[in-house]
Design a protein around this nucleic acid. Sequence first.
DNA 1: GTGCGGATGAACT
DNA 2: GTTCATCCGCACT
Length: 201
Amino acid sequence: MPKLAYSFYQSTDVNNLAVQLLGKLLFTRIDGELTGGVIVETEAYKGTEDKASHAYGGRFTNRTQVMYEKGGLSYVYLCYGIHHLFNVVTAPKGTPHAVLIRGIEPVQGIDIMLKRRNMAILKPNITAGPGALSKAMGIDKRLNAEDLLGDEIWIEDNGIVFPVDQIVSSARVGVDYAEDHALLPWRYYIRGNKFVSKPNK
DNA sequence: GTGCGGATGAACT
DNA sequence: GTTCATCCGCACT
């Protein structure tokens, strides 16, 4: 399957990109171990004007600088001191939009994912949730600011297009601090998919 | 240099 | 529903 092209990531409509990423295949090859899954849940973070975004108000730090780079890079950061969260940087250089990947359905290297997650059998919580999927895919800070057209972490277009009525939008998770932006319906997921993270109402 | 708290998940009661 | 693991980014002194 072809990797998503550089041009795919340059759109400034981050909500549309968050929807477009549903159904795409996220892969990593870490130490030669290939794992991959279908993206089933995303959230849009709209740069400087989004109070839930790390780049809100134009905040520019060592952590957030990659968000300002050209679309098509990874943004991985540590949350709660434990979980690595994976985002896709989008929009042209200077516009710090990002899409958080919150859930994938495993299709490749499931045995490797089970081992990384210390699980015996496949259950949805192996990759349902941004911290969980990062652990299963072997994503950590070493994969921050990686080119998504490279050979460590990338996204492929397998032609899957979910019907519009299969896609649900709702409030983003864990952004209560974002005041009047906390309830924006910028979370997108596949209705009924088992690998969508917990709050799926 | 210090202190607060977070784009979570798992194990509890 | 509640607790807590466990780190460092970030704002402020």
